[in-house]
């Protein structure tokens, strides 16, 4: 693989570099993990970027939408991606970060009907939509139709308020909600990179924590 300056990177070299920052076992567990992300906007694109940097080996990413200039304020895309479908644009960005992460992209609207086909093999499914009805649909559908999957969802990250209001709420063993729970984009408060990235960070961190703890629990 070639970096921007033509530097050739082998998978072994990248693995070693990632290893040096963490434990070999942790690296291997993350490499085996498969995480689904529904919605590739402010939350989804930033979560995906964090997960591939952390060394998660398999991502399933889905969005029907196209990158617009108004997305650049908080999503990982650049003006060069405007007009591209989000799923292939994001795959390209993620492959540049970590060329050895397997990324399955779907340019499609996620519905109750296709949720199992898209995310049925995922250990964790991350809800990263922006419309509340869609958020509820995805969370309900995954919990009903994919009994083995754990769901992480984002609710409340709009506006310019206190960053510490954004938290991880573990509802139960199958559902975690990140966000402040109240700030609604419908109130006209807008969405900014700083707050959206914090929420995305909470969601990605929870995914990593669940994957590592689940493995530990299996061994015990």
């Amino acid at each position: 693989m070639c970096g921007p300056e033509g530097m050739k990177i082998t998978e072994a070299e990248l693995e070693e570099a990632l290893d040096s920052r963490s434990d070999k076992l942790i690296y291997r567990i993350l490499k085996e993990a498969r995480i689904g992300i529904a919605g590739l906007g402010g939350l989804g694109s930033n979560i995906a970027s964090a997960l591939v940097r952390n060394g998660v080996g398999h991502l399933v990413i889905a969005d029907f939408d196209v990158v617009e200039l108004s997305n650049i304020n908080r999503q990982v895309y650049t003006p060069a991606h405007v007009g591209m479908e989000k799923a292939p644009a994001l795959r390209r960005i993620l492959s540049e970060i970590n060329p050895f992460c397997e990324i399955e992209e779907h340019v499609t609207r996620v519905t109750e009907e296709n949720v199992q086909v898209l995310f049925g093999r995922c250990d964790i499914v991350i809800e990263a939509f922006d419309i509340p009805e869609q958020k509820a649909m995805l969370v309900n559908a995954v919990l009903e139709k994919i009994p083995s999957a754990i769901v992480i969802s984002g609710s409340g990250m709009a506006g310019y308020g206190n960053a510490n209001a954004i938290q991880t709420r573990i509802v139960n063993r199958r559902l975690t909600i990140c966000g402040d729970g109240t700030t609604d984009v419908a109130d006209g408060v807008g969405l900014t990179a700083s707050r959206v990235i914090i929420c995305a960070g909470h969601m990605a961190s929870r995914a990593i924590e669940l994957i590592l703890n689940k493995e530990t629990a299996i061994k015990e």
Partner: peptide, 10 residues
Amino acid sequence: VDIVGFVGGG
């Protein structure tokens, strides 16, 4: 019972 209500933004 666990109840979650969603607000918009993402």
